[in-house]
Design a binder for these strands. Sequence first.
RNA 1: CGGGGCGUAGUAUACCGGUAGUACGCACGCUUCGGGUGCGUGUAGACCGGGUUCGAUUCCCGGCGCCCCGACCA
Length: 417
Amino acid sequence: MRQSELFTKTRKSAPKDEVAKNAQLLIRAGYIHKEMAGVYSFLPLGLRVLEKIKRIVREEMNAVGGQEIIMTALQRKELWEMTDRWDDEKVDVWFKSELKSGGEVGLGWSHEEPVTDMMKQFIASYRDLPTYVYQFQTKLRNELRAKSGIMRGKEFVMNDMYSYSVSEKAHKEFYEKATASYLKVFERLGLGDRTFLTVASGGAFTQFSHEFQTLSDAGEDTIHLHRGKKVAINKEVLTDDVMKQLSVARDELEEVRAIEVGNIFSFGDSKSKQLGLFFKDEHGKEKPVILGSYGIGITRLMGTIVEVLSDEKGIVWPTEVAPFDVHLVAISGGNGDVVKEADRMYELLRENNIDVLYDDRDVRAGEKFADSDLIGIPIRLVVSEKTMSEGGLERVERGSGTTSFVSDSEVVQALQK
RNA sequence: CGGGGCGUAGUAUACCGGUAGUACGCACGCUUCGGGUGCGUGUAGACCGGGUUCGAUUCCCGGCGCCCCGACCA
């Protein structure tokens, strides 16, 4: 799209009420707008990034057999009473409201209960299993203290998947597959080398759950890490027994801060029993379905990428999540030939299905470059009198700063999907 | 929920118990044109309520909002 038509604008200074790097940069570059503490709107650039992240997650969820749905944000009180999680004493992040017709509803902070209840309509036999469903949902959580920009809000987008399996053994197998697919997601998001499967508290259901922790000082969690063995343990479960089980010694572990970007959890049969989700096995015997849940914080990931990969000039998006493939920048100084050439390049890129943000604005070069660095699209193509006289384009990689001269056909070839 | 801090143009900030200043932005003109060009003109502001005072944006109280530390985060 033409940048002159993009309604958002960049800013030189960050708002004074944002301290977190992710929020400062995302607001300055025009990706998000703060609505209130812990609540952000996503603007055209931000929405593009969110959709890119969702696309990656969707592809990987589909690859392990997930089927996409969207549950409702409004939830029935009764379901949560059945699992004893309606009480504010038990779950302190509830937003609740009243129906005009009488009665209370909850605004979904999680969806295990409604999804599992819904599945009673569709799962009755071992032939109906396994079933894996997932969704991208806006979760509403009445956090007492929102913080860290888009990393911990009252309203955020999450991908959650639920697995329904016939036995613990079948569940374990899928759990492993889901783990692998999650690691692939983080790999594709450019966070692979700093994201670790981490052993964490299993709560009331199992001994452990697993988290995916991305190393960053901006994180809220402390984990103990053995880089060589790729073993990570959340501080909250670091005991001699746990270290023994994972065959690591305390003095081999490094204490680091990390952002929890995902988690996976086994519920066993407890929730199915509470909500009444049973199936008949091949002998006609009734058994509870084994449930697992898997979550990835989509908006939190966007913040994490900014925290981890940005530099002093601005954001540096990994290729797969960048809002555009290329940032075409025309440095015309009023020269009509340059504008014409840049326009031609814009059309050429679009014809070849390349997502391009075209800075056609009538502003000076310095401002364009500064904005381009801030916005952080992986490749910048510059058209100017200088490049025209040399018969090509200047290509700059945002991450490395590597500059080269290329022809239009080389550009198209390299970027074509 | 405990503790601390802060609310001044669209943004970032300054000063002040006596008619609120600067920069950026925005509008117009000139200038300039590969790293936020220079100049001029203009535009626009004290969170809300109460109190003290001759007079409150400034001091006090309350509310609301925002930020930070901690707690919490199946």
